[in-house]
Each structure stands twice: as C-alpha cells, then as structure tokens.
Amino acid sequence: MKIIVSIKEVPVRDSQLRIASDGRWIEDGDLGYEMNEPDAYALEEALQLKEKHGGEVIALCAGPAGAARTIREALAKGADRALHIEDEQISSWGTLGLAQLLAKAVAPEKPDLILTGLQSDDLGYGQTGVVLAELLGFPHATIIMAAEVLDGRIRVKRELESGWFQNIEMPLPAVLTIQSGINKLRYATLMGIKKAKTKELKRLEVADLGVAPSPTATIERLYLPRKTKQTQLIEGSAKQAAAQLVEKLRFEVRVI
C-alpha cells in the first residue's frame, strides 16, 4: 500500500521564544527546528504498516528550504521518498491554504492512506489532516491510537475523553491523525542516514500547484499569557528553596 505521511517542522521543544518586533510572530531567525512530535509518531506508524503490508512510504512537508533537514530525517528513518512544497513564507498560507497545497501535491500520488500528527506543537490548530481529507473527498478519523489494515478498509482505535476509546472502520483511501504514544519511535541508523542521501526528494513550487491563497484567520498580536494565580516564587540555593517549600507545605498548606 502507498502511504503518505504529512510532517511539519516546528521550533525545538524548550526553545526560548521571543516575540518579534512587529508583535505578530516570534523571532524565528536563530531558532532550532525539529519534526513535530505527533508527526514523528505518524511516520513511525506508516513505517510499521509498510513493514507489515509492503508498499511505499512518502514523506510530505510544506516549509522553507531549511525543512529539508527534517525531510532527510524522515528518509533516514525509512521513508522511501519525499515531496517538499518549498516556500519561505509557508505560514502566510493559513490552515486552509496550506491544506489546499498539500491536497494538490497528494492527489497525483493516489495514496491508499494518509497519516499526520493530530496537531502541531507550534500553532496547535489540530486540523490539517481533517481539512486535507475533506479536500480530497477521503473519510477520516482523528486522535488514533491503533490502526489495522483490512481488505480495502481500515479499522482504527480512536481516543475519546477521560480514558474512553472507540473502534471505527472505514474504507480506504482514508486520512488518520495520529496521537503521540501510539507506538515506540525508532532512531535513524547510520545506514539509514547514508541511504537517505540517495533517496528522491522532489521539490514542488507553490506557483505550480495552482492554489489561490485563501486567508482566513490572522494573528493580530502575540503576547505572554497573563498569570491567573499569584505565584510565591521561592528563591535561594536548591537546599534553601527545598527547606522553605517544605516549611510552607507544613505550616501554610498543612499536608505534612
């Protein structure tokens, strides 16, 4: 089966974020980037399905030229080839425009299955996969914790709130958004990294995809959240702070 995995590059977890001078985005020039974590789980799931059923895994990414690093990582982990929709201002396309670009890139491949992470760790809108499914006319299911390919169909375990789950079956081709923790991530091997250099990485120009920008929501202002609670910050050396905290737990919170 042919599986496309849509991946995104996001700032490295625990990056120190600074708001840009226009107040609408972050200073992103000096940030490090990595594969969005839920997308890494989607890639792993695709690789495991390929190992079980055969076929091909294609990594798909829309992003600036620098995103090629993350795409190479996907190839090193085992994706067979990759599609890179290259644009330095990819975020200006908005969720709908971006999904339209992805749909145009995906359609000629006629995949059996499209996987992506349930949300991105930067914008966190959590909808690219679902929008992509609608644009392609594919059925979808979200927040998936297990996937089993049957004959022309797929049965998935969908996470609901508070520890509940539900199994759902639907015909292929389909789109699934994958929940973190569905599987155990592999590391790229040295051999994998070497092989990745020879694998096909096809660049697609935005202009060739024939999508008109359809701006929807825009960010007017970015700012630090206001605190909802007055936090007593306890300072001093680790030992002093620990002693003070325990004293407060004892005499103010009264749990010791």
């Binding site: 974020l17 914008l123 960010i219 007017e220 630090l224």
Partner: peptide
C-alpha cells in the same frame, strides 16, 4: 479570539477573515 500557541507559552489574538 484568544488562543494559546507553542503549547501554552504564548497567547495570540486572532481575528477571523474571509
């Protein structure tokens, strides 16, 4: 609309359009 970005590290004011 106010949304959280970057896992709650920043807030954004978002104005709908289109």
């Amino acid at each position: 609309f106010v949304r959280q970005l970057f896992q709650g590290k920043l807030n954004a004011d978002v104005r709908p359009g289109g």
